[in-house]
Nucleic acid binder design. Structure first.
Lengths: 342, 342
DNA sequence: CGCATAAGGTTAAACGCTTAAACTAAATTC
DNA sequence: GAATTTAGTTTAAGCGTTTAACCTTATGCG
């Protein structure tokens, strides 16, 4: 079964392939309404579907967007375990599809850049989530497609950025503890990397402490990986070795849930013995017991926004460098994991 | 900045483009080791990266796999909220990348087939998860690429299938309740669609009841959508209007967690008043309180297997129709949501 | 030595599309 | 009525690969 080509369509419609191409691409004024009708009919009759490879080869547009998300520690799998990323992807995909784009979702190999993929596939743009080593961004700058960074503080005129005010998030969470009488507040977090979101949340945490005249104790920050398991481990440590700590700010809900379990593992209770605040407000946050107090951000909206920004930049490549930073809203959601100290 | 083409490489190496193409594609015996060396060097020097569009146009291979997953009720977003799908995707992506393939992840538009995408992009294959209306599969059969169906009982020589023994899963869960003295066991489930997985789980549920000489009561099956919210709603209904029910088998962990919440909403406890068993063993199942007893399947492994099958079929298109059905293992994981009745 | 064969290389025709440039015919201008 | 413009259409040259077919030499063999 041979493929139906633009030539077949042109023959059936009795016009040239150029004419067909023009009507398919809606070139205004290039073609009479009569021809449009003939071509439409032929396309319909033959059930013609254009070949995007050929199109891409001819005009250098692929209608393909690269989306990269972080990988697990072992570097083998995508970090989709974290529902935050799932929701982000949902938003991105929905918006891209709406505009006829497809998404190539992938992780990125250890050390490798993303240049290969972007060149091979002639990507029209990319959305990069998470934070990577510097060389990765250097590579990215060399490529001439628009790029949107999500959750990154790597500012550069080459990149559009969509994020939230992470510093504020960290501040709000910590201040909430303080308002409830807590003075020994631990931070449980993934690796604090330069220009990453947790660095800012950490800064907000410190600002709130300072503002309240509290001593910042480095021993109270537990830094490792963004996993449920590490949250659990850290909480066990806290429950057994740090009796002074009454509150834990986890920089991701996933970790916060681990913390809650770890606390219980040691025979203590949340929030009776230890209060917890998370970050993200992933959907399970309201489902767990007790429901988790957390800093809410809308991951789906973030994804949609990232896609929107990218599409706009593709449409209009001469980006005005003014508004290429987008900050989405965030808020503290009070549920039941913070105890008011007497 | 012009693109480096195979022609540039051939000129620098002092050979023809054909020679370059041969070494790039590892055509054995077509080329001397001397030429191989020269070409390798030139590729390295110029940092040449082939254009997959051109390649696809020339040899009809795209190294692109379509992956489709179900969408939410409102038909706008991917069903990635359900961690089961996230994990599946992780497995698929990891395996595909390992073999140099990329994945186009998408939902499929209301009513639309998948033919368009597959033709436009010249897909080398597709992995379809979930269950769709019949016309969708009819379309799929017309396309000449290998297709792997995950979680579907649509058998057809055109399709490879990877799944689990859902009937057995339903049976095991139900029997576990019965062994613990329960006799009024509700089923909370998403839409029971022909050839879908829940249909089989439902069958297993009925078989276990029958085997134990228990009456199957249609009023005890609560069928709607695969969401936390519906689980919650059903549980509230059960807790208030069906006092005889002591156990709930939810056909997905997400729903089971909703059930647990719904039970609590009505001032009752799991498992003291109502026992619960879920399905999938998503990672949060062990994290929730109390940890959920469930039917475990390994979603990541399932994804890897699906990808593996597809790759094999692509390698070797003359598929022997014997082994195109793959059944993955499953087991009951006892945690703390089932109470032993006196 | 003459000829078949093999090994290694090249040429050039696809693949299916876009688009600048050329062309044609009709309409407008002076 | 010739010259110019306009609108609509076609021609044909790419885009960057692959690969069948062809062309050289060198090798082996009777």
């Amino acid at each position: 079964m041979k493929r139906i080509t633009i030539r077949d369509v042109s023959e059936r419609a009795g016009v040239s392939t150029a004419a067909v191409s023009y009507v398919l691409n809606g070139r205004e004024g290039k073609v009479s309404s009569e021809t449009v009708a003939k071509v439409r009919k032929a396309v319909e009759d033959l059930n013609y579907i254009p070949d995007f490879s050929a199109r891409s080869l001819a005009n250098n547009k692929s209608k393909l967007i690269g989306v990269v998300i972080p990988q697990t520690e072992d570097r083998k799998q995508l970090l989709l375990q974290n529902p935050f990323y799932s929701e982000l992807i949902c938003g991105i995909e929905a918006r891209l599809r709406q505009s006829g784009f497809h998404m190539i979702l992938s992780g990125v190999e250890k050390g490798e850049g993303y240049l290969d993929t972007s060149m091979q596939r002639n990507l029209d743009g990319a959305i990069i989530t998470g934070i990577y080593q510097e060389s990765f961004y250097e590579d990215l700058k060399k490529v001439r497609m628009p790029i949107v960074l999500v959750d990154s503080y790597v500012y550069d005129s080459h990149f559009h950025v969509v994020g939230i005010d992470d510093e504020l998030g960290g501040y709000l969470a910590t201040r909430h503890f303080i308002e409830n009488g807590h003075t020994n507040i631990a931070l449980v977090t993934g690796l604090i990397r330069k220009d990453g979101v947790v660095e800012k949340r950490f800064l907000g945490y410190k600002r709130a402490l300072k503002e309240a005249g509290l001593f910042y104790n480095p021993d109270h920050v537990f830094e490792h990986s963004v996993t449920y398991e590490y949250g659990q481990e850290a909480a066990r440590l806290i429950a057994t070795k740090y009796p002074e700590i009454t509150a834990v700010f986890a920089t991701s809900d996933l970790m916060a849930m681990g913390v809650m379990q770890g606390v219980r593992d040691e025979g203590k209770e949340v929030p009776e013995h230890i209060s917890v605040i998370g970050f993200d407000d992933i959907s399970v946050a309201r489902m767990c017991t007790p429901p988790l107090t957390t800093i809410k951000q809308d991951a789906i909206a973030k994804g949609i926004m990232a896609a929107e920004r990218l599409l706009a930049a593709i449409e209009n490549p001469d980006a005005e460098h003014s508004e290429n930073l987008m900050v989405m809203p965030l808020s503290l959601i009070e549920r039941n994991t913070v105890r008011k100290l007497p």
